[in-house]
Lab assay of single mutants.
Amino acid sequence: MLDDRARMEAAKKEKVEQILAEFQLQEEDLKKVMRRMQKEMDRGLRLETHEEASVKMLPTYVRSTPEGSEVGDFLSLDLGGTNFRVMLVKVGEGEEGQWSVKTKHQMYSIPEDAMTGTAEMLFDYISECISDFLDKHQMKHKKLPLGFTFSFPVRHEDIDKGILLNWTKGFKASGAEGNNVVGLLRDAIKRRGDFEMDVVAMVNDTVATMISCYYEDHQCEVGMIVGTGCNACYMEEMQNVELVEGDEGRMCVNTEWGAFGDSGELDEFLLEYDRLVDESSANPGQQLYEKLIGGKYMGELVRLVLLRLVDENLLFHGEASEQLRTRGAFETRFVSQVESDTGDRKQIYNILSTLGLRPSTTDCDIVRRACESVSTRAAHMCSAGLAGVINRMRESRSEDVMRITVGVDGSVYKLHPSFKERFHASVRRLTPSCEITFIESEEGSGRGAALVSAVACKKACMLGQ
């Protein structure tokens, strides 16, 4: 009897593995994704193909990295998701002549009506938060230079001027797309009239992360975010950046690689679950690469896999709870928690219980395998993109072996128990001629924006502006 049951459990697990095998990517698959990513990057950089390229390769006008001589107080704003952060950054000489960066910050959550109302409502709310922060720190009387981390696709015309191309991540505030974001912020500050600010720089969160990590390690020339969304930036040779005049030196390019796949480059790798996630998203047909990796989508992918296993009578005796059938019910943090389970399955059992399920031991094991399959594919897909960037940098610099540091931020990278190990191992397999160091950014977005502002202020002083 026991043997029969054991055989049935083994057969069930084997069927589960057959279904989950769809998520496995072979090294040849990853090399294919990497080569296609490089081709799209090239198209994004070139003037004649930029418009139709899915990977936009947006110039950021960040050319210099901090040298350690900029000092002063800077205000930093960070808008990239449902939370908005205001930070005071003091850049100065530390002990023994070292450079020191001290920060104080406060988080504000953005109400739904500000995210989806008008641009005026959104930026009025942001300036209200700045006003509140300055009151708390008794700094209303000071006109501070301000660095703005704005983590949406922007076409820069200068370091302090950028046109919002399109909202992502659930934002829909009308009247912002096609307009200068810094102008919208300046107008809102003017409307309030109770404080003055000098907006000197606007950067993407990947750029802010790279600059913040450069402060720790001067070989950091790539910034990457794996959180709600997924994106990367890197220092490109100016001669390859056709959208900006000049051939000397390097400029940081914001790849906006989340949109890779929007022209069909990933079609052969998309599964039924991916198509369902895409169809029910706020932007169907867009940001397809990001939807395979980002935390906004990972939990939902797992939920759809679990429903398939229920329908195949391989999980929960073929019956799903009402909660499990509800879109968004299986949160991405559950994926991390399930994979963090120590082996007694308590954590998995508790999560499934909150979803109205009474799982068996085998159910718990199957749910864990589903989570591992989805998150491992995410790590491997992400590795193909980064390997594409790094191999490109090595080739354009004609280096036999390139040493490089990548600064990384984002909740999936930082909080998932195995993502970074799987990701690092896969990147290294795909970049055999590179020695890569990964560092995690601390308060990256805010500190990085302030350091970019410090560079901009120093330049302005040198130019006598």
Results as ranks from 00 to 15, higher is better:
33 V>A: 07
189 I>A: 00
199 V>Q: 03
149 T>Y: 03
405 T>L: 08
464 G>V: 07
446 G>S: 15
427 V>A: 14
151 S>R: 03
89 V>K: 04
8 M>Q: 13
295 G>N: 00
76 S>D: 03
58 L>I: 05
101 V>I: 08
122 L>D: 00
220 C>N: 08
254 N>G: 03
227 G>W: 01
7 R>P: 10
79 L>P: 09
218 H>K: 09
245 E>D: 11
26 Q>H: 13
355 L>F: 11
353 S>K: 13
357 L>N: 05
121 M>T: 08
347 Q>E: 11
188 A>H: 00
61 Y>L: 03
458 K>S: 14
346 K>H: 08
412 V>R: 01
453 S>R: 02
173 A>V: 03
120 E>A: 13
453 S>D: 04
334 F>I: 06
191 R>F: 01
425 A>I: 14
355 L>Q: 13
172 K>F: 01
313 N>T: 08
74 F>K: 02
189 I>P: 00
123 F>I: 00
167 W>L: 04
12 K>T: 13
205 D>K: 05
117 G>N: 11
142 K>T: 05
437 T>R: 10
274 D>A: 00
373 S>A: 13
96 E>I: 14
268 E>L: 08
120 E>V: 13
126 I>Q: 00
255 T>Q: 02
271 L>R: 12
345 R>Y: 06
36 R>A: 12
444 G>C: 06
103 T>M: 05
441 S>T: 13
367 V>G: 03
435 E>W: 12
382 C>F: 00
393 M>L: 13
88 L>A: 06
32 K>L: 10
49 T>G: 14
158 D>W: 01
200 V>F: 03
49 T>L: 11
147 G>Y: 05
14 E>H: 12
382 C>D: 00
442 E>S: 13
115 M>C: 05
129 C>I: 03
175 G>C: 04
232 A>E: 01
248 E>W: 14
80 G>D: 03
327 R>D: 15
25 L>W: 06
174 S>G: 01
240 N>I: 08
166 N>R: 03
54 S>C: 10
141 H>K: 05
101 V>F: 12
207 V>M: 03
7 R>L: 11
157 E>W: 05
326 T>N: 06
187 D>A: 09
96 E>P: 11
230 C>I: 05
268 E>C: 12
104 K>R: 10
463 L>Q: 10
60 T>W: 01
337 Q>Y: 09
194 D>G: 07
445 S>N: 03
131 S>T: 03
52 E>K: 11
453 S>Q: 09
257 W>H: 09
74 F>Q: 06
356 G>R: 10
259 A>P: 06
157 E>Y: 13
438 F>P: 02
111 P>Y: 05
337 Q>C: 14
213 C>M: 12
3 D>H: 13
291 K>I: 07
293 I>N: 02
307 L>S: 11
221 E>Q: 15
370 A>E: 00
445 S>I: 02
453 S>W: 01
213 C>F: 02
275 R>I: 14
198 D>S: 07
306 L>P: 03
380 H>R: 13
299 G>N: 04
356 G>Q: 07
327 R>E: 15
33 V>M: 09
69 S>V: 13
